[in-house]
């Protein structure tokens, strides 16, 4: 890849979103996990191949950041596509564990600590 296509890289991903640059919902943070609904609802299938690729990749739960990396698309683009899929009832999303500084979750911290100890 040469340096010459750098302008093209800016534009192309957002062509997939029909020019939308902002997500319609805030659910899809970097480590939210996305899972394809199985079986898929019987409805008009979205035609864009990216939707199909996303659904295939998240047949098993997958974090938004991982999905973006595997699709080789910016997170900001993938999130917009995920909003479409969520609204079409094709995926579910699980938010990350809440981390509170005022009331830390000791049990969670110990679990992570023990897991690291086993590495």
């Amino acid at each position: 890849m040469g340096g010459g296509d750098s302008a093209g890289r800016l534009v192309r991903p957002f062509a997939l979103t029909g020019g939308r640059t902002r997500p319609s919902r805030a659910d899809f943070t970097l480590i939210a996990t996305v899972t394809a609904v199985d079986p898929q609802p019987v409805a008009a299938a979205p035609v864009q191949p990216e939707y199909t690729r996303i659904l295939r990749l998240c047949a098993e739960p997958l974090a938004v950041a991982e999905l973006a990396a595997r699709l080789d698309l910016p997170v900001s683009v993938v999130v917009i596509l995920l909003c479409d899929l969520l609204e079409a009832g094709r995926i579910t999303v699980r938010p990350p564990r809440l981390v509170s500084r005022t009331t830390p979750d000791l049990d969670l911290l110990k679990k992570v600590r023990d897991g690291l100890g086993r590495l």
Partner: peptide
Amino acid sequence: MAGSDVATDASSAPDTVKI
């Protein structure tokens, strides 16, 4: 789809944390 809320959880998905 079950439930009134848009499916916002998938019980088989792991919890995630980050550093």
